[in-house]
Structures are given as C-alpha cells and as structure tokens.
Amino acid sequence: MVTIETPRSPRSRKSANREKLAWLFMRASGVILIVLVFGHLYINLFTGEGIKAIDFAFVAGKWADPFWQVWDTAMLWLALIHGTNGMRTLVNDYSERERTRKILNTSLWTVCILLVILGTLVTTTFDPCPDTSVVDALPQFCNK
C-alpha cells in the first residue's frame, strides 16, 4: 500500500504565511497594475501618433512631470515583483529537482532586484536636457 503525504501540508507554518501574503500581493498589485499598465499603453500607443511619436524627447517630456515619474516608478516595482512572483509559481510547479528549483528562483529574484534598482535610478536621476551634440533629439523646452 502506497502512502503519500497529505498534499495540503505546507513545508512549514512560516512559509504558509508567506505564501498567503504572496497570494494577496498578486491580487492587490494586479488591480493597481491594470490601471498603471492600461494607462501606460493608452497614453503611449493610442493617443497622438502612438508608437511613431516615441523617442527621447517624448520620454523627457513625460518625466519632466513628477506625476509620470511616480507613475512609471510604481509600475516598474509592481510589474517586476508581480512578474517575478508569477514566474516563481511556475518554477515551483514545473521544476522536478530541488536544486534546479532553487537555482531558478534565486536567478529570478536577482534579476528582479537588479532591474528594480536600475529602473529606479533611471526614473529618479533622469536629466531631460543632457549635454549632447545632437540637439535635435532633445525636447523643445531644453532650447531656451
């Protein structure tokens, strides 16, 4: 007779609580991301000339406004953590060896943290009028 562990028993009480938090985070961040991502796509791809209009000057124009800096930074953090946690559930579901699972999950969170740091530095230290030989590439408000 084969006995199997009750599938419902978590690895530990602590990780069960963490899983519940992760589950809640996916739903809470998901709702906020619908507003942030759908808004992002609407403004950048649907209004005006859409994809055609996107260049350095466009981004500089947006990030000259703290509203879009906050919007994009929030979107960056939430999307990366939501996406990485989603990938974690897939890795947990499909990896067959414990070692593989650990390596993949560690890589996922490493990439997530690096991109969150990189992205946050970009949105917060961005200079819309940098020194450049190609003045045409700059937004109009730089030529004053």
């Binding site: 000057a57 960056l76 991109l115 990189l118």
Partner: peptide
C-alpha cells in the same frame, strides 16, 4: 526596462 534605461546613456 533595459531599453528604457538607455535614456540615461544618451538620447541617440
């Protein structure tokens, strides 16, 4: 995220 980070490198 990577392609957008290029704004910090140069407009070109």
């Amino acid at each position: 995220v990577l392609d957008t980070a290029l704004v910090r490198l140069s407009p070109e």
